[in-house]
């Protein structure tokens, strides 16, 4: 099990009803965790539309999670 801190922005924050949470998960990668969180929170945005940053840097979805990682899921935003 890995424990990570997850930060949500924009529509994800709305759907998760929280801007951050700490998650203990069996998921190995950022993508697997997103799938797990999607199942839990009902996220409507597909992974293909999203970006993920780990510990302050945009990272591939296949990145392996480590204990204590700061994960930020970032949806695209267009308003002006």
């Amino acid at each position: 099990m890995t424990t990570v801190h997850v930060q949500y922005y924009a529509i994800l924050r709305e759907q998760a009803r929280a801007s951050r949470e700490t998650v203990t998960t069996r998921a190995q990668t950022a993508a697997a965790l997103y799938a797990e969180l999607t199942a839990r929170h009902g996220f409507t945005l597909a992974e293909s539309l999203m970006k993920v940053a780990i510990n302050g840097e945009f990272a591939p979805w296949a990145s392996v999670l480590n204990d204590g990682d700061e994960i930020v899921y970032i949806p695209p935003v267009a308003g002006g």
Binding site: Y9, A10, R13, I74, P75, V77, A78, G79, G80
Partner: peptide, 10 residues
């Protein structure tokens, strides 16, 4: 570039 959503921006 900038864009906004509700209370947030990039």
């Amino acid at each position: 570039f900038a864009s906004i959503y509700q209370y947030e921006g990039q």
